[in-house]
Amino acid sequence: MSRNDLILLIAETIGVIAVVMLLGLSPRVRAKREVKFIYPRREGLFALAGFAVILALAVIYYAKLSHTGLQDDLILAGLSALPFVAFLLVRRQPMRSAGWGRANLSLGLQFGLVLAILALFIYNRIGTILGGLSGAQIGSLLYWLAICLLEESIFRGYMQPRLSAWLGGLPGWILCAAMFAVWRLPLWLSAGGTFVSVLPNLGLALIQGLVLGYIQRKSGSVLAPALYRAVSTWASLLG
Rank of each mutant, 00 (worst) to 15 (best):
G139W: 00
R3Y: 03
R41Y: 03
L23F: 12
Q208E: 12
L223G: 01
S80C: 13
I10G: 10
S221D: 02
M179A: 08
L25N: 04
S26T: 05
L189E: 02
L175Y: 00
L141N: 03
A181E: 04
S221A: 13
R3M: 08
I17Q: 09
F121T: 05
Q71H: 12
E152Q: 02
R92I: 03
W188R: 00
A56I: 01
G101A: 11
A235Y: 00
Q216V: 03
R41N: 01
R162K: 05
L206P: 08
E34F: 11
W100R: 10
L8D: 14
A86L: 14
E34T: 13
A165L: 07
L107N: 15
Y143H: 13
F111I: 05
L8G: 06
N201A: 13
Y39T: 14
N124W: 06
L141G: 01
G132P: 03
V182P: 10
A235P: 00
E12H: 14
A205R: 12
N124I: 04
G101K: 01
Q160W: 08
A86S: 12
T194E: 06
M179C: 11
L105E: 08
F84R: 00
L206M: 14
L48W: 11
W234E: 06
I174Y: 09
Y39W: 08
V90Y: 00
C176A: 08
R28G: 10
T233Y: 03
A165T: 06
A49N: 07
L57N: 05
G169Y: 04
D72C: 04
A56T: 04
R156H: 10
F155H: 09
L237N: 10
E151H: 01
T13C: 08
A103P: 00
F87L: 10
L149N: 11
A11S: 12
M21F: 15
M21G: 15
Q208W: 15
A224C: 03
V85Y: 14
L187I: 06
W144Y: 10
I17H: 02
P200H: 03
L189V: 09
F51R: 06
F37E: 00
I14M: 13
Y214K: 02
L167Q: 08
A165M: 08
G127I: 03
L25I: 05
R33L: 10
A31R: 15
G131M: 02
R217T: 11
V19K: 09
L118P: 11
S164K: 09
K218A: 13
G157R: 04
L170D: 11
V20G: 08
W166V: 10
F180V: 06
S106V: 14
P186K: 15
G50E: 00
D5L: 04
E12L: 15
L120E: 00
L115C: 04
A191P: 07
D5A: 14
A31V: 10
Y214Q: 05
A47W: 00
G213C: 07
P94Y: 00
L76C: 04
A56C: 15
Y123T: 14
G50L: 02
E12G: 07
S140K: 12
I75M: 12
F37P: 07
